[in-house]
Structure formats: C-alpha cells, structure tokens
Amino acid sequence: MHIPDGVIPATVAVGSYVVAGAITAYAVNNVNKAGNAQEQVPKAALLTAAFFVTSLIHIPIPPTSVHLLLSGLMGALLGYFAMPAILVGLILQAIMFGHGGLTTIGVNALILGVPALMSHHLFELLKNRLPEKNGLTIAGFVAGGSGIGFSVLLFFAILIGTIPADMLDVDLERQAITALTIAHLPLILVEGVATAMLVNYLKRVKPELLKGLSDARA
C-alpha cells in the first residue's frame, strides 16, 4: 500500500512533503524532550527493520495480495519515535526495492505515520484506563487495528481524490481502488491480534520495552 511516483499530482506530493516534514519535526522534538531517546533506539531500530521487511511478505487475499503495514504496532510500541522510524523505513523501501517512490515519500509517511501517532495515543489512553487484567490486550488490539484502519482510509481518500480526470475509464480506476481497499480490511483484524499478542508477550518477558517515551517523562 505504497503510492508510487507519478500517481498523485505534483502539488499533492509537495504538500505532503511539507506536512510530513512538520509532523516529523514535532515527533522528533517530543522524542528529544523525553530525555531517554538513546534507550529507545534499539527498539526503534529493530521495529524499523521489521517494518522494512514486511513489505516483501505478500499475503494473498483474493483477488489481490496485501502486505503487513505495522503502522498501529509501531505507534503502540514506539510512541513518537514511530514517525522517524517509518520515514527511514519508507526511504529504504523506495531506494532498495522501488516500493513507493521518492516523490511520494511524504504522502506515504502521512498514510502510515499519522495513524501510528494516533495509535500511540490510543494505546496509552486505553492502557491506563482499562482494568489491569485484560486492559493491555484490548489496548494492543485497538491500537494495532485502528492504526491499519486509519491508514487504509487515508490511502483510499487520497487515491480517490486524485484520480486524473483524463483517465480512459475513471469508474474502472475507482472500482480498482475500492477493491484494493476492501482487500486490506482483514489486516485490521490480523494486525490488531498480532499487536495484542506482542504486547502481552513483551509484558511477560521484557516489560521495560512497553515503557514508552511518555512513561520516561512522567
């Protein structure tokens, strides 16, 4: 679910770069304010590696195939660090494999990064408000699933809103985008469950990894 070069208008690509740059600066500023950024680097590096490699793993969902996005998981585990981590992952995917494009790194960073930040806040909110017994599981599921849902929604809105009027068959393109969006919906469940399982596992074996930047600040 990476938008490649030449698909969106140049104005949208440039505008996305500006907005993504501003959000990344805000995120990095928050990382620096927390004061424990270096402690978070190993976790961020490993999750960036996971994010980078998941674009190579295709899951067949007829009539197409999709790959894991990890935006919700990155947000839940990395907090504000998710935004620069996703940006680095996207740049490497574009350069190494041609996934996405160099002109569309901004818009792809928005599609995956903004939902990651939203998932981070949702995870922190639910984790602290829900009962201890199953609270972490529910928070992980909601954060992981909603991150994907929001990413898919942004992807759909941007592509539908930028279909060139001079395309041969606009309706056919609209149908194709809708079909691809629907094919991604099962990922909400898959990544929600995966995030819930991972946070539970980390709580048992290495609970300090669940301490985000906000915990360190408190």
Binding site: V41, F52, L56, F97
Partner: peptide, 27 residues
Amino acid sequence: GGLSNLQRMVIAAAVIWGFVGTALYYQ
C-alpha cells in the same frame, strides 16, 4: 524485470543487519 528474489533477499538481509547492528550498538 526488476530485482530477482535472490537480490531482494540479499538487500533485505543487509539492511536488517544494519538495523540490528544499530540496536546492538545502542544496547
């Protein structure tokens, strides 16, 4: 034609090793 699967695997392994190295360095 693009990259072959072997080329993709080698590139992915190299990049992952870079991230793991970064993690180990800071750890």
